[in-house]
Design a protein around this nucleic acid. Sequence first.
DNA 1: AACCTCTATGTGATTTTATAACATTGAGAG
DNA 2: CTCTCAATGTTATAAAATCACATAGAGGTT
Lengths: 165, 165
Amino acid sequence: MSSEDASLIGFSKHDHEACVADALKAAETRCANEGLRFTPVRRKVLDLLLTEHRALGAYAILDMLRDAGFGSQPPVAYRALDFLVEHQFVHKIERLNAFVACAHPGKTHSPAFMICRLCDAVAEAQSVPSKGALGAAARAAGFQIEKTVVEAEGICPDCLDKVDA
Amino acid sequence: MSSEDASLIGFSKHDHEACVADALKAAETRCANEGLRFTPVRRKVLDLLLTEHRALGAYAILDMLRDAGFGSQPPVAYRALDFLVEHQFVHKIERLNAFVACAHPGKTHSPAFMICRLCDAVAEAQSVPSKGALGAAARAAGFQIEKTVVEAEGICPDCLDKVDA
DNA sequence: AACCTCTATGTGATTTTATAACATTGAGAG
DNA sequence: CTCTCAATGTTATAAAATCACATAGAGGTT
């Protein structure tokens, strides 16, 4: 990985075709290992999200599925997304009601996102639910955390440059 | 504050009528000080959220507004909520597409929520965006955080007790 | 008071997001 | 081969949010 990519598939460029192909291959392998069915619709949705490399709404995905010859009704997209989200190939960005391909697939993790309000770019980082203020509050209250939504909205480095200029 | 309330208006009981009255009074005062218009609809929506003391969807709020003699179209609720959220009298829970009265009003803050998936109770804690993994990732990436969404889903102490029993 | 202006409210229509319900298909187990 | 169950397709509807435009009302100016 070049130094340009240091921010983890976040706000930077990279060899995208290879990146997509690798990620699809990895998903395929993991599904085979875990007995999950990586069906054509599911694969296509993941492909779309990897290729677009940004957050897409379910209906934008649905349009692309229709163009690709799949069913054109909402459940087609939502069911594929449910599967991909459940197995963390894809994450839902609650703030945007949209979906992004996971940037760190292959293991269970707690994603944290940075969302640019100017260009809608989304970068994924990792959080550690048990740490920090929330972890402490949960421990103090006796609350048992199962999953976390951590999303920061702001301005990405690229847009900051443009604004400054 | 009694020890019973130690979890910060979270998962515990308290004198609710006084709590609501105090919060409304405080909002009124702050609006007066800051030149904000604490109109009847806005007041009513805050009152409802304080009284219910849980997350309510916009349409649940709208129903109550209708019953109270206010307009019955969605924008009535959404506009009041926009105002209350903008000034942090109320927070939006992205995970639930719902709204809760702020538990720590009066100053700018970054809320963090614990949401019980069994009883839908919501408790508010504080987060510090610049700290933790997300803050570090943002600094590393050159991302400028403006606001954060931090929501933990899991099981609240009350429901844990019931499950254990 | 009369007027102006700007914000807030009311209302109807529409868009966007998501789910329910049920029929059909197709892969893998036996 | 056929049984079964998961996945897909389709129709319909629900839930959440916004747009566009008309009306009303508060606060300031003359």
